[in-house]
Nucleic acid binder design. Structure first.
Lengths: 343, 343
DNA sequence: CTGTTAGCGCATTCAC
DNA sequence: GTGAATGCGCTAACAG
């Protein structure tokens, strides 16, 4: 610590009680809205607290009450904007309820995720919010034994969790697939995220392929490439796809990050979008409206998903269980998609 | 909490001491690697702890030792990717040192920032990392009194802080200004972030204007519009700028978010970039390489800035003071800039 | 080297 | 309705 620290500058419950001219017990009761406090006394305490800008020491409160009002969050990455806005929504909403958020990013590594979950438990978090439904079984076991709630986002599969806030990735991919089918496309490519350890990527891939198969598209007409979420890699994948013969006329990307790379490749290779190939993204990041042509993509309301995750967390604290919340997805049609070119 | 939880199932230091057959003081010392513990005793304690899967109660430890190994972070927003990568770098680096990060976003509101700083102090953070050097004096006072280190990022002005990790925004804007002057431009526009309560925005604006003035550009030839960091608002600002007569031939934007909006406006209004107007951004977000034309912009190495902020934080913990770290800025010239059009 | 003692700040029991 | 006293689990003096 920096100086003689703490005690010197920080106001404690005792200070509030002194100023209000009552005991710390009464001050505590007043602040916590305990009913058995005289109206006048309560008023004086509240006034004193606000003048002093009193904020309860959470370590002491946690020690005493066994409630930390701390929530852990583990996201795969903050490198792209994808999860940042969800964090924003979650934090803002939880802050209103007096809950603080410990943040971690796992780099899409389920083993690091487990380590981070352990750290969070040691920190006393009462819930851990993660992305997706696929995690190491050890993570779930540990969290369970520690009595820590598990909230999954970007999914509606409860799995080992206590709450799932998101959407069905399979279904979402199906929307994209049907949209492209309706435009007359019959030869498809998909640029998927790495499905290993990533149920969102896997379900999007499977949902897309299954939808096409159900419509009678032979497997040979569906080429899937998996790659990390990175613009350049998305571009490289598109290059490969455009070299297959016959060439796909429609490409679905598991993320706008990949889609944007794909668009860039087409531009540099002189492949016309959507005339020669249609591209559909996923997420509706800001960037989707900024590339040329603007990207048709599935809009994920990330911020409200974060807020909903916060609400679910609070509901779990109040005794709720097995909460599943669907957030609405919506295909935003822009200029990167069009009818299949005549053969 | 979820189950009967904690107290029931959770092992405390006392349990470990019992099992090891020593006092809790000795157990504590052994666990904390205190040198004055007999080798045999230490071994027994460690063994007992691991058998019981003992994890120290961090609330109790924090309350007693005033050491939380907790750092607070307040960023203006997580809505855009701007700060997210910095968070990533900071968290990853601090995690290695056993420090956890509490995240908050203030919405560019210095008053909310103050509230959040208070909350963080109540949570026992030992340092608060913020963006920029301008904050409410009350915030600095409070943090100081609480003995909490203040680390500022995106700036090299120490101000009331203990460490500053970033770059000189004035100077950075000067680089952009000189670059445009060298291209022969003489009529300028700037789309700036709101300077009120935002020293980064203000310094970029002032640095740009001063550089031009020093080169003999009359004030009447420099039009500055301030607006929030938002693509659409950037576009609207560009529209205004393009309606002034004579029209600026070069526009500097305080953020790529604004610049991208500006580019979009030009596209829709049929204004050629860079032939009719040059556009320079700031940040070098991914999106800069994705718009057409690709954006000339100042690259800010955000992730390493986050890591450097983490390093500075650790250095402060070790007794360092007044740490200033410069991160290297670099003008990335792409296609959105060119020579001033002939008049 | 080890045990005993004393709080950290708060919420809560028990008296009054 | 209010105050005094107790202890959450832990670490740090202080003795021995």
């Amino acid at each position: 610590m920096k100086t003689a620290s703490r005690q010197s500058g920080v106001v404690s419950l005792k200070d509030v009680a002194n100023r209000a001219g009552c005991s710390i017990a009464t001050a505590s009761r007043a602040l916590n809205g305990h009913p058995t406090v005289g109206a006048a006394e309560r008023e004086r305490v509240l006034e004193a607290a606000s003048q002093l800008r009193y904020v309860a020491n959470s370590a002491a409160r946690a020690l005493r009450s066994q409630e930390t009002r701390l929530v852990g969050l583990i996201v795969p990455t903050l490198d792209h904007a994808i999860y940042a806005r969800m964090v924003d929504g979650l934090q803002l909403q939880l802050e209103k309820a007096g809950i603080s958020v410990l943040i971690n990013s796992s780099g899409y590594d389920l083993e690091r995720e487990e380590t981070q979950a352990r750290i969070l438990v040691a920190r006393g978090v009462e819930a851990v919010v993660m992305v997706g439904a696929e995690h190491r079984p050890e993570t779930a076991d540990y969290l369970n034994r520690a009595g820590v709630h598990q909230i999954f986002t970007y999914t509606t599969e409860l799995g080992n969790g206590d709450a799932a806030i998101g959407f069905d990735n399979r279904e979402a991919a199906g929307i994209a697939g049907r949209f492209l089918l309706d435009l007359g496309h019959r030869r498809f490519g998909m640029i998927s995220g790495i499905s290993e350890g990533n149920d969102r990527a896997r379900n999007r891939r499977d949902g897309f392929v299954e939808t096409l198969a159900a419509a009678g598209v032979p497997e040979s007409e569906i080429v899937v490439i998996e790659t990390s979420y990175n613009i350049d890699l998305g571009g490289a994948a598109m290059r490969s796809l455009m070299q297959t013969r016959p060439r796909p006329t429609a490409v679905f990307c598991g993320s706008d990050v990949l889609a944007v790379g794909a668009v860039r490749t087409c531009k540099s290779e002189g492949i016309a979008i959507p005339n020669e190939v249609s591209v559909v993204g996923f997420d509706d990041l800001e960037v989707a409206q900024v590339v040329t042509p603007e990207l048709t993509t599935l809009n994920v309301p990330v911020k409200s998903m974060g807020e909903a995750a916060a609400d679910a967390t609070l509901a779990l604290f109040r005794g709720g269980k097995d909460i599943v919340t669907h957030v609405p997805l919506r295909l935003v049609v822009r200029q990167s998609t069009g009818p299949a070119p005549a053969t």
